[in-house]
Design a protein around this nucleic acid. Structure first.
Lengths: 128, 128
DNA sequence: CTTGACCTTCCACTTGCTGGAACCCTTATG
DNA sequence: CATAAGGGTTCCAGCAAGTGGAAGGTCAAG
C-alpha cells in the first residue's frame, strides 16, 4: 500500500501519517522509487492510534498504549491506569466547560441584545 | 506600576503580559531604565482579557470584545453574538467530551485491571 | 561592594498537526 | 512522443497561546 491507500483506510490524512513516522510510531519500508510502502500491520497500528487520539489520548498516551498493546506480557491494570487518568482529565474538562457555560449563558440571558449600548456581558468582564 | 505588580494584580504571568504587548493588546510606556510602566487603565484591560480568556474566548474574540468595550456606541447585540457563538462551541466541546467519557468509562468497567494480559480497552482500540 | 530580586531582549520549545513550495514518478490520452 | 493529471517525496513555515531559559541591565539593602 502507498500512503494514499493507508490514508483512506485508516481515516488519517497522509500528512498526519508522515508526521507519525517522524515521531517514530511507524517505520514503513521504501519502494525503489522512494515511496513509503505499508503493510497491514502498520495500517492497523495507525488505525489504533487514530482511535486512541479520537478518544482524547495524547500522543504520549498512544506511545504507552502501543507499547502495552505489543507487549504480550503486560497487565491490564497498566492500561486501565492510563485510561482512568484520561477519564479524570475528561471529567475535569467537562466540569470546567460546564462552569463556563453557566457563567456565559447567565450573561447572555441578561443581555438585551439590541442596538442599545448597555451590555451586562461587557460590564461583567470589565469588573475590576 | 512595573510588570511584576501588574502580574500580581491581574493574575496573569509577566510572560503573558509581555506576550499581550507583542500582539498589540497594550502599549505600556517605558521608564528611563527601559522598564514597562503600566497605569490603571492597562491593568484593567489586562484583567478584562484574563477574565474573557478564562471564559474560553479566544485571543481574537478578546480583540473584538475589547474593541466593543471601548466603543461607546456599540450595540449589545454585537457582544451577545460573540458570546452566543462561544457558548455554542462550549456546548459542542461538552458533547464531545461526554461521548469520550461514555466510551472510555465503559471500557474501563469491562477491564479487570489485574495482572492478566487480557484487556478489553486495548482489544477495542485494536479492532480493525 | 556585593547579593538578590527585579527587569530587559531574544530564541527555542510546546501539541498535533496543516499548508505550501518545489520537485520526482506513473499512467493515460491526444 | 509530449504532456497533463494525479500520485508521491522533501523541507520549511505556521497555527494557538503562551512557557522556559539564557544573557544581561537595574535597583535597593546590608
Amino acid at each position: 500500500m502507498n500512503i494514499g491507500d493507508v490514508a483512506e483506510r485508516s481515516g488519517l490524512p497522509a500528512k498526519t501519517i508522515r508526521y507519525y513516522e517522524d515521531i517514530g510510531f511507524i517505520k514503513p519500508r521504501r519502494s525503489l522509487n522512494g515511496y513509503r510502502h505499508f503493510d497491514e500491520k502498520e495500517l492497523h497500528k495507525l488505525a489504533f492510534i487514530g482511535r486512541a487520539r479520537s478518544l482524547g489520548f495524547t500522543i504520549e498516551d498512544c506511545r504507552s498504549l502501543l507499547a502495552l498493546y505489543e507487549d504480550k506480557e503486560r497487565a491490564s491494570a497498566d492500561v486501565k491506569d492510563i485510561a482512568k487518568q484520561n477519564l479524570k482529565e475528561i471529567d475535569a474538562k467537562i466540569a470546567d466547560l460546564k462552569a463556563m457555560h453557566a457563567t456565559l449563558s447567565h450573561l447572555i440571558d441578561e443581555c438585551a441584545g439590541d442596538h442599545r449600548p448597555d451590555c451586562p456581558i461587557l460590564k461583567n468582564l470589565g469588573q475590576t
